[in-house]
Amino acid sequence: MKPAAFDYVRCETLDEAAEMIAQTGDDARILAGGQSLVAMLNMRLATPAVLVDVMPAPDARKVAAENGTLKISAAVRQASLLGDPDLASRNPLLAKMLPWVGHPQTRARGTICGSVAHADPSAEIPLALAALDGTVILRRGRKRRSVKAADFFLGMMLTDKADDEMIEAVTFADVQQGTGTGFAEVGRRKGDFAIVACAALISPKRVRLAVGGVNDTPFVRDWDNLSPQDEAEALNALAWSLDARGDLHATARYRRDLVRHLGAQALKEARTCAD
């Protein structure tokens, strides 16, 4: 199939893109990496009247360290962030998760903000945003608002973004020194969306496990104090608290088993890194 007819607008700045989206609302779609959107266009699952291309805008390709966070603008490609030599020291969890996003070919085109906008519950980048207390910076014309990841993801591929808003940037909180990180994932094949993925953060004050691929949104559980001896019981309780459902990829029982197994694996790695 071929996409329905649309107008194409090439934007040289984020200001221009935000004004265009504010004017056209639900009739427009942002084009950045296009890894999900182009397929949806070809199948006519999306039929926008206008495509607003932000890739030519220099201010849409910025990565900046701001106030203890990593701020990533709308058109930063996944491969570009993964190739940042300072990423592993600044945010080791994000550095561990990014290689699991798709394939080198898709990471070369796909964007960080595009994955957040798509909001697939099995995707690694929305999971990282939730695990790292991330925020989404939404823009309508000249007005901006910041939404915490916990409030941004509302359901499967459903977000708090209004039709006349665009994602201008996302921020990931830095991983503090002394915090261990771990990540584990199972998918049908390398590069596929996760059947279940678990991201762990362990600091002297908190143990956190974020789970993707089970609920309709990334799920985050914090424990004030969780010893290795209590992990199995805590992971079992967590697995049963999730809204696990079966589909053509995995049964609900298998997903719960993966939460227990991958959660233990991610927590063990995080404890090793924290020591």
Rank of each mutant, 00 (worst) to 15 (best):
R90P: 00
G83Y: 03
L93K: 01
V38Y: 04
F193I: 06
A150C: 04
P56R: 03
K205Y: 13
T135P: 00
P218K: 09
E185R: 11
Y254F: 13
K143C: 03
Q265M: 08
L127M: 03
L248H: 15
V175C: 13
A49W: 01
G141W: 02
A210T: 10
P3K: 01
D120N: 14
L41M: 03
G213S: 10
Q78I: 14
S36K: 09
D224A: 15
R109N: 10
H103I: 04
V220Y: 14
E185D: 01
M20W: 13
V186H: 08
T272I: 12
L98C: 03
I112H: 05
K62Q: 15
A5R: 13
A149F: 04
H103R: 15
A108N: 15
V186L: 14
A128Y: 04
V196L: 08
L14H: 07
D164I: 03
A173V: 11
S203M: 13
R90E: 12
Q78M: 05
F183R: 02
I202C: 13
F6I: 05
A244V: 05
D59R: 02
L154A: 12
R29Y: 04
V207S: 07
R142F: 05
E168M: 04
A234C: 05
K268E: 10
L248T: 12
A49V: 11
D120G: 13
A22M: 07
P121K: 05
Y254I: 04
P104K: 06
P228S: 01
G33E: 13
H118C: 03
D247E: 09
A4K: 07
H118D: 14
R29N: 00
D164N: 14
V101E: 09
L45E: 11
A239P: 05
N91H: 11
S36E: 09
V101P: 07
L87T: 05
L14W: 07
I21Y: 00
M20C: 15
H103F: 12
R189T: 12
H249A: 10
T111Q: 00
E12L: 14
T272Q: 08
L93P: 02
G114K: 07
T179R: 03
E269G: 00
P92E: 02
E233Y: 00
P228M: 02
C11A: 09
S89T: 12
D7G: 08
D84W: 12
Q35K: 01
A46Q: 14
R256P: 10
P85L: 09
P121W: 02
T106C: 03
G178F: 12
G178E: 10
M1P: 08
H261L: 08
C113K: 01
N42W: 12
Q23P: 00
P92R: 04
D257K: 01
A117M: 05
A75M: 10
C198D: 05
